[in-house]
Write a protein that binds this DNA or RNA. Structure first.
Lengths: 226, 226
DNA sequence: ACCTGAACACCGTTCAAGT
DNA sequence: ACCTGAACACCGTTCAAGT
């Protein structure tokens, strides 16, 4: 049997597509810090140098991976002025969940304004929901910035705890241990509400923050601009 | 002349203190990513291995540097129920400014709950101001989390732009350029408010977010806890 | 045009050896 | 006890050489 091209061990040819998929596989398996050029290359049975034909550098690889992740987000139903608040809160929560499912990918939009097509569509839907709620454009412009920063930071923080292997329930114990090391007279308020401070899941805290921002939007006057 | 210890070239003896100060000098000069064990060691005229007598590892060095930075924050006057909102907004803004003055140090509290003494005192003061405003403890507990996440993420984002040398005014042009690459029919809302979207300084956006959260606190019911 | 091995200039951390 | 050089196991990126 002659080794024709077709009978080769079937190593898939490289392509930007293949590089991104390999990157996402590595992300799922080892988290964002595990996504090194070498690791992605190994996943593709090649050397790190080969990737540079398809991506300019590691940062651009991560940027493109991010936009792929964002494409998974379900935009939900069209904006309905009667239910815009619920729709908005649900969409924003789905965004968070999608980012959290991809350990640490949220560091990417934290590090540079995402300009991929999918991210733009998601942001556009958020704007649409706010308009359905009758919010003025200037407030919307600022709100978008604030709320995405909040979502990304939340997802990134979650990823770090997962990466460090901190079990959710040990955080409370850690915090208590740390506070007990300090001089209680310098932090009287904290000491008098230690129980309350450590209550509530990350999810509940996130949703409370969302509600604060949305409710605030209904009571704060639009920002002045120069 | 015999070389007595006193007549040596006066290399300051190492100490945790000295290591932290060297770390902060490197931070000011090269940003958070420049704070490598080797760079800090060079600053002290020694090798990286020598630092491990005083700090367990790089992460702990950064943690301790962070608490030192936090010690610079001016807590302001004692909480006054008549002016608590202004006091709170000012304090939170001063926290942001202090973090922004130390390029990228905000990545530290984003990566692990800060448990140093100075951070605890600052948080305690924020709690005190909220109590002066009559906010209930459960809302305070969640608010603290949310607002510090917001501040840290804002400071971190600023640091990245500075590190990458992006001039503040080029961001608008970059965003416009990115949007013009996309299919306008997929982002109708965005296209119809492009001007508004790029208005406003980072400072103005940050303060708007703060106002949303504080105003929200006055209109949202306290979170339920299991 | 695409792919590759080797090299360059870095990292954090450990450890045996010195004082 | 403190300090150190060298080594280990990594990085991202470049480049000359191959096909």
């Amino acid at each position: 049997m002659r080794a024709t091209p077709r009978s080769q061990p079937a190593k898939a040819p490289l392509s930007k597509e293949a590089v991104l998929e390999a990157g996402l596989r590595v992300l799922r398996a080892k988290g964002i810090d595990g996504v090194t050029m070498r690791a992605v290359a190994t996943e593709l049975d090649t050397g790190a140098a080969s990737l540079y034909v398809y991506v300019a550098n590691r940062q651009q690889l991560l940027n493109e991976m991010f936009d792929r992740v964002v494409s998974e987000i379900d935009l939900g139903e069209d904006p309905d002025p009667k239910r815009w608040r619920d729709q908005l809160e649900s969409l924003l929560t789905r965004i968070l969940e999608t980012l959290e499912r991809h350990h640490g990918i949220a560091r990417v939009p934290l590090a540079n304004v995402p300009t991929g097509p999918n991210a733009a569509v998601v942001a556009d839907r958020v704007i649409g929901l706010l308009r359905a709620g009758g919010i003025d454009d200037r407030s919307i412009a600022f709100f978008i910035d604030v709320v995405f920063l909040y979502i990304n930071a939340t997802a990134y923080e979650t990823a770090i705890y997962v990466e460090e292997g901190v079990p959710e329930d040990s955080i409370e114990a850690d915090i208590r241990a740390a506070f007990s090391q300090l001089d209680p007279t310098t932090i009287p308020n904290t000491m008098s509400m230690l129980d309350v401070l450590t209550q509530g899941s990350g999810e509940a805290r996130f949703r409370f923050g969302l509600r604060l921002m949305i409710e605030g939007l209904l009571h704060v006057s639009p920002p002045e601009v120069a």
